[in-house]
Design a protein around this nucleic acid. Structure first.
Length: 297
DNA sequence: AATGCGTGGCG
DNA sequence: TCGCCAAGCAT
């Protein structure tokens, strides 16, 4: 892969995303990475802008209540990410002097920070030479380098080695990794890739005549009718109420299957997103002043 | 290793 | 319409 032509394309065509601004702090980059886990850029944009303005540092974030955090997270989805981001802020504030760690090993110890996010922070916030592998990068490498329509099953070790082999050995590494991700996001997309505008002069998939991928039945997760949908509806009610709600206010969001509803509510309690007051009502964790700490936050 | 975890837009 | 997809992580 010709890194120079990819970087040149990126410098010319890249989207003007606010977390790419050089003035953005490592913590704010970390926030963007949490929000972008499994969530499209367009949905993250307004949330991120509000969030970093309201809580610009780890300690400021840690000082917020879980309820405030969950409301600011809004409907980004996967609210456990918001809780982990809150926990992550507390760990950085108390154990790392309010400074986001700069090495992958330490980053991996933080709540909600996995292989991708740790490397993204080390690379994009600190300019380190580390392979950054997300779903876009895996797809681009599978096509341009391996000549396959789609990436195979994820394997962190193997995938990172494959990307490391492509990384330029100079200060352009972060730009190259960003460019790889950008290419996968806007050109070399999962469905209907825009090969007509691809900046790569060499692509193994194109050279091979765009062979179709094997019909791997990678099962798609259902949503309608799942516990996740019920959890979403329950949290919707709780986000909208600044006071604890009665059980029947939650019951009405899912009447078809009371057992499922109870299971979903229980899982929210287990996850530490929701708590029950002494009089049996329900609220987001940390809703009231005296409720702080009940969720271990 | 496979599964659970939100949400909404698009073809 | 509805299946598919979107900068993953934890268990």
């Amino acid at each position: 892969m010709n890194s120079a032509e990819l970087v040149a394309w990126y410098e010319r065509e890249r989207r003007d995303l606010p977390w790419r601004d050089p003035s953005v702090s490592a913590w704010q980059i970390l926030v963007s990475e949490f929000m972008l886990q499994q969530t499209p850029v367009v949905r993250v944009l307004p949330r991120w802008l509000e969030w970093v303005d309201r809580w610009p540092t780890p300690s400021a974030t840690a000082a917020a209540s879980p309820a405030d955090i969950l409301r600011a997270w809004g409907k980004l989805g996967y609210p456990r990410r918001a809780k982990r981001l809150h926990e992550c802020a507390a760990v950085i504030a108390t154990e790392h002097g309010d400074v986001v760690p700069d090495d992958v090993q330490t980053l991996l110890t933080l709540p909600g920070v996995g292989s991708y996010t740790a490397r993204a922070i080390a690379c994009f916030a600190y300019g380190q030479w580390v392979p950054v592998v997300d779903t876009n990068v895996r797809r681009v490498v599978a096509r341009a380098v391996q000549g396959l329509a789609d990436a195979g099953a994820p394997s962190a070790t193997r995938d990172e080695a494959a990307v490391a082999a492509l990384l330029p050995n100079d200060e352009s590494t972060p730009t190259f990794s960003a460019a790889l991700m950008e290419l996968g996001a806007v050109v070399c997309t999962a469905r209907s890739p825009r090969c007509g505008i691809c900046p790569l002069s060499s692509c193994a998939w194109r050279s091979a005549g765009f062979p179709a991928g094997e019909a791997v039945p990678k099962r798609v997760q259902k949503y309608a009718g799942t516990d996740r949908q019920v959890r979403g509806r329950l949290l919707d009610v709780l986000r909208d109420s600044t006071t604890p709600v009665q059980r029947n206010a939650l019951d009405v969001v899912w009447l078809t299957d009371p057992a499922q509803r109870d299971r979903a509510l229980d899982s929210l309690l287990v996850d530490g997103l929701v708590e029950q007051t002494e009089d049996g009502r329900f609220a987001l964790c940390g809703e009231g002043d005296d409720a702080r700490g009940a969720c271990g936050a």
